[in-house]
Write a protein that binds this DNA or RNA. Structure first.
Lengths: 107, 107
DNA sequence: CTCCAATACATATGATAATTATGCATAAGT
DNA sequence: ACTTATGCATAATTATCATATGTATTGGAG
């Protein structure tokens, strides 16, 4: 594993929360949106995304809802719950603390 | 595992490089110094530290050297190599990029 | 109208890193 | 003398991530 990949570890859940806090999104959309918003920097693999989404739903952070559009196939939209919103807030704070400490140590 | 612990994943190697770039340090010293410099935020467990040091030495990032002081017991000092110095530089850059992207996505 | 790429969700498997637990030994303070 | 801190080390377990693969639908190109 590259250092770049190693660095990204632990960011998955927070990123998902941040994205669905904007609007409900479905899995595939999350991968595209994340890539787009970060100019290609973040690329979430499906093998990581879907299990994480399932775990987060079980923990009550997000809530899934199937939707069938007139044209196109069914999509599973994920909505941020109240618990998830709170989690996002505290995780943002933890990230800020971490980044401050990290920057200080790296000079 | 807490979110806080999860966030710290992947920072181990960079932190070690940053510390020994200041001056050669021995294992136990690294744990104390890291804790001190981060006001208790970072705490590296020995079960993670020593295997990581050994791996990093095998990769040529650091070089170990036993030293026996007049008083006190033997210590294994780790020195930053040229390869390690270069690695630190690029890892710092990768961390900066990551943190910028992260901050942008978290708003 | 057929084929291929993109979309969309999902899981199994293996690798890596981190935690936890434990071991051994020396040195310093009370 | 005994306890605590120092100092290095590994084994066993757990968690997370990457890789690979599977299935199915849809839209567009030829």
């Amino acid at each position: 594993m590259t250092v770049k990949d190693q660095i990204k570890k632990g960011s998955t859940e927070t990123l998902i929360l941040a994205l669905v806090s904007d609007r409900p999104m479905y899995g595939y959309e999350l991968t595209q949106e994340l890539k787009k918003r970060s100019n290609g920097y973040f690329e979430m693999k499906e093998g990581l995304l879907y299990p994480t989404l399932h775990r987060m739903e079980k923990e009550g952070l997000i809530k899934a809802e199937w939707q069938t559009p007139e044209s196109g196939r069914k999509r599973k939209y994920y909505n941020l719950t109240a618990v998830g919103k709170e989690a996002l807030g505290s995780q943002k704070e933890e990230w800020r603390t971490f980044m401050t400490q990290m920057q200080e140590l790296l000079g």
